[in-house]
């Protein structure tokens, strides 16, 4: 635009390429910053001078710490490491880290946002020795419940997976822990939309983010497993000790201190007072009664509709109906005899 030659020259100068010559140092850019500094001494904060590799225990502890890492890839890696460590452990040797350390740190990943992390977590949980799970059942159950009521469908489904696994491993603990029975029933009824307090006979509007039939059938299946655990007799009855062995003592097993952790949890000596929902229902009869009082009618109406739907949903519903029928069979008989 301008006619002045000086300005034109100036403009040209801006875009000139610097000439590079072989054997000479490269000219510095105009905006380069000198980052070198001088110091009298440099202190290293920590320094590892050991020549041996860290032990398996230490590495496991390190990876446990990494479970909080912000990158989900890292979390998954750490879980994978822990899983392989558990798997490769020789059968009779002690685990590199006890489950009482692993479970509390790992369990909150049940609510993790990334699917891969969650799947890996389930693998880790499955690799843990089964008897140790039982004492952490209530914690895991809480997390599973949180996952089941989550807004995201993926997490909902994963919550069901965890619950199913948990029922398989420690079904009795799950149904008898504090709040484990009533709250779970309520939660299921909510999820399936089978509230007993549903007032109107009109079909309910399709609610926000409601599960499709696939999720629903899955929910019914897990509910079936849950009810089976709660309403049926515990399979593993206390080991039958031959009476002749300790002759003068009868029924020793009832007098020794229980080998379960927190054996007197039902007394609730130190916790806050519980209401009906948070109460522990350790007896099968109790659970039957509560189920009858709170949920049976709602489940029945819900089942009716689900069965009509047919398909996968209908099959799951039929299973559930069967379980309820079997589980509640002796309850009715009792009631009849009483009245």
């Amino acid at each position: 635009m301008t006619s002045s030659s000086r300005k034109k020259k100036d403009k040209k100068k801006d875009f000139q390429k610097p000439k590079l010559k072989v054997g000479k140092t490269r000219p510095k850019a105009a905006n380069s910053t000198n980052t070198s500094f001088k110091a009298k001494s440099i202190a290293l904060k920590q320094q590892s001078l050991s020549t041996v590799a860290p032990t398996l225990e230490a590495q496991c502890a390190h990876h446990l710490g990494l479970l909080n890492h912000k990158s989900d890839a890292q979390r998954r890696e750490s879980l994978a490491y822990l899983t392989t460590a558990m798997m490769n452990n020789p059968p009779m040797a002690a685990l590199p880290q006890p489950p009482s350390v692993i479970i509390p740190t790992a369990q909150r990943l049940i609510l993790d946002g990334s699917n891969n992390v969650r799947q890996q977590l389930l693998k880790l949980l499955q690799s843990l020795p089964q008897p140790d799970i039982a004492s952490h059942a209530d914690q895991l159950l809480l997390h599973a419940r949180a996952a089941m009521t989550h807004l995201a469908n993926e997490i909902k489904v994963f919550g069901l997976d965890v619950l199913e696994w948990l029922l398989g491993v420690a079904g009795d603990e799950v149904v008898s822990c504090a709040g484990g029975w009533v709250k779970m029933l309520k939660c299921f009824l909510n999820l399936l939309g089978w509230q007993s307090e549903a007032t109107s006979k009109w079909s309910a509007p399709k609610s926000y983010g409601k599960a499709d039939s696939k999720i629903q059938s899955r929910q019914i299946t897990v509910l079936t497993a849950f009810l089976r655990a709660g309403l049926f007799h515990a399979q593993a009855v206390t080991s039958i000790v031959p009476n002749g062995n300790n002759f003068p003592l009868w029924q020793t097993e009832h007098h020794v201190v229980s080998d379960r952790s927190n054996a007197f949890a039902n007394l609730n000596l130190f916790g806050a007072t519980r209401d009906e929902e948070a109460e522990m229902y350790e007896d099968r009869e109790d659970r039957q009664r509560v189920f009858h009082d709170r949920a049976e009618a709602a489940v029945a109406t819900g089942l009716e509709q689900a069965t009509k739907g047919g398909g996968e949903l209908g099959r799951a519903a039929a299973q559930l109906r069967k379980v309820i029928k079997e589980g509640m069979a002796d309850f009715y008989r009792e009631e009849i005899t009483v009245s």
Binding site: Q139, N190, L191, G193, S207
Partner: peptide
């Protein structure tokens, strides 16, 4: 009224998380 169920779900979620948190 229509979203009552969803609210109940969220409220349950809150209660569960609160229980976890209180520990």
């Amino acid at each position: 009224q229509s979203y009552r169920d969803d609210f109940i779900n969220q409220y349950n979620q809150y209660e569960t998380l609160r229980e976890l948190f209180l520990q």
